[in-house]
């Protein structure tokens, strides 16, 4: 949890010996349709779904910090600030109704959201994002931290920059991009997938829908795709200066190896699968042979 480590170090340096600890614990009833909006500088935010139509916010902080929890229109907002001096890292535990949409953002913030069944947005500069559950639009973005999504459905837009993205057990539409990280996708049932990275690898284990569109593109990394023998897809390969290989027989066009740009059809060819690397290796495998 890089965001939390940084926040704790920062807090220690800035506050050692000058502030006392205080507890914040408040519960607010919320009508359906209310969303949670959290904006913090540093620390950790853990949001868990519970079976009540109310929200509980707990935090341990310095007495010099001020926590503000209020209702603003259709939103419950959580903010914090230091009354004097530099801002501190604060850890929050927040319980929300499962139906509540959650939006959390911060600079040095680790974010964990568990069990909700609504839209989720989480964004941080330095910190990990881990979301389990969620349905609808899921936007998770970290510049320096890992983005992990589990057991979710809907439309996911995931972005990291310096770290990886992992998705396990997702149904819906998926967009994932990073610069230097790798993207690992497991147990995916999606009709539309677009994955891009520049310096990382891409690996896929999942079902290809007959009418789906899938695009995996990396610059220097590899693309590892497991393809069931019953898949119906037109596969478009562009390897630029890279390499293509398949662990099962595929008939390639003449001159394919020279041009490194070719297509072939599996089954009826109804789905579209675009695989692209500039300098890496594109590997096709059967599921049982896929790299774990």
């Amino acid at each position: 949890m890089p965001g939390r480590r940084f926040a704790l170090a920062l807090t220690f340096l800035l506050c050692a010996g000058v502030a006392e600890a205080a507890e914040f614990d408040r519960i607010i009833s919320v009508p359906r349709g209310t969303r949670l909006d959290v904006r913090l500088f540093a620390g950790e935010v853990v949001v868990r779904a519970w079976d009540r139509d109310s929200i509980r916010v707990r935090a341990t902080h310095f007495t010099s910090d001020e926590i503000d929890l209020r209702t603003l229109g259709q939103a419950i907002t959580v903010r914090a600030r230091a009354r004097r001096g530099a801002p501190h890292g604060i850890d929050f535990d927040i319980d929300v109704p499962a139906w509540m949409a959650v939006d959390v953002a911060g600079t040095y913030l680790d974010i964990a959201i568990d069990g909700t069944t609504a839209n989720v947005a989480a964004e941080t500069v330095r910190g990990d994002i881990h979301v389990k559950g969620g349905a609808g639009v899921l936007r998770l973005k970290s510049i320096d931290g890992e983005v992990v999504l589990e057991s979710a459905r809907g439309r996911a837009e995931l972005s990291s920059t310096n770290d990886g993205i992992r998705v396990t057990g997702f149904t819906g539409e998926l967009i994932a991009d990073t610069v230097n990280g790798s993207v690992k996708l497991r147990a995916i049932q999606a009709t539309s997938v677009e994955v891009g990275t520049f310096g990382g690898d891409i690996s896929w284990e999942g079902a290809f829908s007959d009418d789906g569109r899938y695009r995996f593109a990396t610059h220097t990394g590899g693309v590892d795709v497991s393809l069931d023998s019953r898949v119906n897809a037109t596969v478009n390969v562009r390897a630029f200066e890279g390499v293509f290989r398949a662990a099962f027989p595929v008939k390639l066009p003449d001159e394919a190896s020279r041009h490194r740009r070719f297509s072939f059809v599996l089954g009826s060819g109804s789905a579209r699968l675009d695989l692209e690397t500039f300098g890496g290796t594109i590997s096709l495998r059967r599921p049982q042979l896929a790299a774990r």
Binding site: T234, F248, P249, K251, P253, V265, L266, G267
Partner: peptide, 20 residues
Amino acid sequence: MNREDTRVEGGCREDPWVDR
């Protein structure tokens, strides 16, 4: 080599040249 379920085309199945 499973030549029954894999075949190569130029891309567009109606007009194989358009993709070239």
